[in-house]
Structures are given as structure tokens and as C-alpha cells.
Amino acid sequence: MSIPPPPGPQGPYQPPGPQGQYPPPQWPYGQQPYPQVQPWPPYGQGGSPSVNGLAVAALVLGIVCLLPGLGLVFGLVALRQIKRGGQRGRGMAIAGSVLSAVGLVLWVLFFTTGAASEFWDGAKEAARDNSAVFSVKKGECFDTLTGSLEGMAYDVDKVPCSGRHDGEVFAVVELPGGAFPGDSRVTDIADDKCFALESDYVLDTWALPENVDVYYLTPTRQSWAIGDREITCIYGNTDAEGSLTGSLRADETTLDADQLAYLETVRALDAVLEKEPEDYPDEDLEANTGWAEDMEGALVEQAAALRAHPWPAGAQKPLEALAAELEASADDFGKAAGATDPDVFFEHYESGYEVVDGPATIDAREALDLSTTPPAYDYDDSSGEDGEAGDGSLNA
């Protein structure tokens, strides 16, 4: 005999079907105990198709305009794949292609019209401005954080030149691009350029105090890497504990027309004086006689320029007297230029040199309201070499 199973959720026992198989169980209330899980239909067998990846990439590149040429290629390839395979993303592919095409046109215009050059010049200028240690320019004054113009400088404070300050900028030299030339080379350039530009800022060398010297800020290898290409030429106090007061500037921005006219004539003569040979006449007579000839020509030119300028009433006589002495000095240097003996050269050389920074020069300067204290020429300086200034510099 058979024992039917106990009643339960399956309901009462039912005999097998016609083919000897049990019928599916009947659940109460028409519900099933678990949901049926349908697998995702494979591609091409119904369901939602996937999005084309190249279409997405084309849209992203088109929006950011980073690589417009690549974005255009991705968009066109995506359209072909979508048409063949039935994927989604046709709108993204079209939008990416259009945006990339527009971006490509803009890039072509950017590089062919010079806009790229202007853009990079502006970017480099901005980087240079942001990375420069000194924000001060020619004619401005500043204080350093340490109060010293030697060593490393990381920042400065711009202050009025009328008060006390550590330094005054008299020139800025722009270095060419390329690889960092090295600390020694940068220092050599600073020596040459700063001392050459000094007289452009201070035409009246007599007005420079004895305690003032030339310093400079130079790029370092680290600051060069972020765009620093400037050498900043500075006036500072030779005393590490000292400072400056008042501007030292003496050029066309601070001098009147008569002062400028006089100082320009002096400048031409000073340029020849600086070229005096280092060897004595008994060592190299030919070099000295050649220089004496140049002195003769410079003195004649200076005297002629002084006579040609319409000086104010109070300065006419002192300037005429100076012109006469310069002509007499030119005669002496002319005789020194023709000397065939060192002793004869010295005789005329000393007579001609008496005019340089002499009483007539002081009277003329006083009449023009210029400094009347001759500078002290010290050829034995801290560098230990004649004619060269001591080393004073800041590094960025």
C-alpha cells in the first residue's frame, strides 16, 4: 500500500501524468516561492544594446578640445561601428565629431596667426613675474628681509626711496633663454652689464657717496628653471650694517637741460680717461702716446661743446673759463702724443692732467648746482685687483 505524504503547501497528492511525470507543484494563491531570473540577452539577441566606447571618447575630446584631431577620428570610426553593429551612441559620436572639427579649425588658426607665440610669450612673462624674487623695477628702492645685499634673497619689500632703504635698482638686464649658463658665467655677465649701465642712471659720478657700491641680484639654477632670466643691478651701502637715504638717480628724469649738457660732455671725456694704458710710458711708450692722442681729441670736442651751449647768465663765465683750460690741456696732450721719449711724455702728460677735476671744473659745477666734491679713485679695492669692484651680489 502506499502512504500519501502529509498535507502541506504542495497540496494533496496527485497521481503521475499521462507520461509518467509528476505535474508541476501547485502553489497556493497562484504565487511562486522564488522569482524567476532571466539572463541578460547576448548582443544581437534582443534587449538593450551597449554604448559605443569610441563615441564616448569622441564626445569627451570634443568638449575639452585637447586633441581635436584624435576626437574627430574617434567620432567617424564610432559612427561606422554603430551603423554596422547596432550599438548606441550615434548622437555622442556626431557631437564629438562636430566639436572636434571646430576645435581643429581653431587650433590651426591659433598656430598660423601668431596667437600661439603671443600666448606662450604671455605665459612665460606671467611665470617670470610670479617667480621673480624682486618685484621692484629700475628707479625703485627696497629692503631685504635680512638687511644684507649678499647671499640668498627670497623676498624684498618695496619702500619709498626718500626714506632709509637697503638698495636702489638702477638697471635690469634680461638674459637669453636656453640652458642655465652656470653661476660663474651669470656673475661675469652681471659684472660687465651692471658697471656699464651705472653711468646711464647716475650721469654725475661726483654725486655718488663714497659708501655706495654696485651689487646685483642674479638667477640661480633653481630660479632659472621657473623662468627667472633677470639680473637686477643695485646700489647699496658698502657697510653691511648701513643703508641708503634718498634716491641716487641723476639722469634726464632728475636733471635740468644745462646740467645734462655739461655732464654729457664730461661723460665723453671720462670714456677716454678710463682707457688709459696700464703700462707706464717707459714700458710701452707707443700705447701711451696713442692714448694721449685720443685725449687730445676728446678735450677739443668737450671744449667746443661747452662753447656751443647757451648757458644761463650765472654759468657763462665759469663755463667759458673751463673751455679755455680744456683747450690748453688738449695742447699738452697733443705734445705728449708726439713724444719720442718717456720723460718728455711725462712732462706734457702731467701738465695736461692738471685740468682734470681741477679748480675750473669745480667752479663750473658750482655754477650749475652740481656736486663739487671730486670722487676718490681707489684702485686697491677689496677684490685685490686694480680697477675692479669688490664682489657683492644676491642670488634668487
Rank of each mutant, 00 (worst) to 15 (best):
A55R: 01
V64Q: 05
Q45P: 00
P35A: 14
Y34N: 11
W27Q: 05
P35Q: 14
G30N: 14
P49G: 02
G53V: 11
G47H: 02
Q32R: 15
W40Y: 07
P49R: 03
G30Q: 13
L66S: 13
V64W: 12
G46W: 07
L54F: 03
W27C: 10
P39M: 12
I63Y: 08
V56Q: 12
Q31E: 14
Q38G: 09
P42L: 13
S50Y: 03
I63H: 04
Q45F: 09
A55H: 00
C65L: 15
L54D: 05
L61K: 04
L61F: 10
P28Q: 13
P33L: 10
L61V: 06
Y29K: 14
L54A: 05
G46K: 04
W27G: 07
P49L: 00
G47K: 05
V51K: 00
Q45W: 00
Y34K: 14
A58W: 05
G62N: 05
V56P: 05
Q31Y: 12
G47L: 04
G53F: 06
N52Q: 07
W40F: 07
L66G: 14
P28T: 03
L54W: 00
G46R: 06
P42S: 08
A55T: 01
W27L: 05
W27A: 08
S50D: 07
W40I: 08
G46N: 07
L61N: 07
Q45H: 05
L66Y: 11
G53T: 14
V60P: 11
L59N: 09
Y29E: 15
W27P: 05
V51F: 01
S48C: 03
G62R: 04
G44Y: 06
C65M: 15
L59V: 12
S50N: 06
A55K: 01
P41M: 01
P39N: 13
G47W: 00
Q32Y: 15
Q36C: 12
L54N: 02
I63L: 14
G46L: 05
Q36W: 10
P33H: 13
P41K: 04
Q31A: 14
Q26A: 14
Y29P: 04
Q26S: 12
Q36I: 15
P49H: 01
L61R: 00
L66A: 13
G44S: 02
Q31I: 15
G47Q: 01
P28W: 07
G44P: 01
G53M: 08
S48K: 04
P49D: 06
W27S: 04
G44V: 06
L59Y: 13
L54Y: 03
Q38P: 08
L54H: 03
P33S: 15
N52G: 01
L54V: 02
Q26G: 11
V51G: 02
L61T: 06
Q38I: 15
I63G: 02
L59G: 10
I63M: 09
Q38F: 14
A58R: 01
P28F: 10
A57G: 06
L66T: 12
Y29N: 14
G46F: 07
G44M: 01
Q31G: 12
P49E: 03
Y43C: 02
V37C: 08
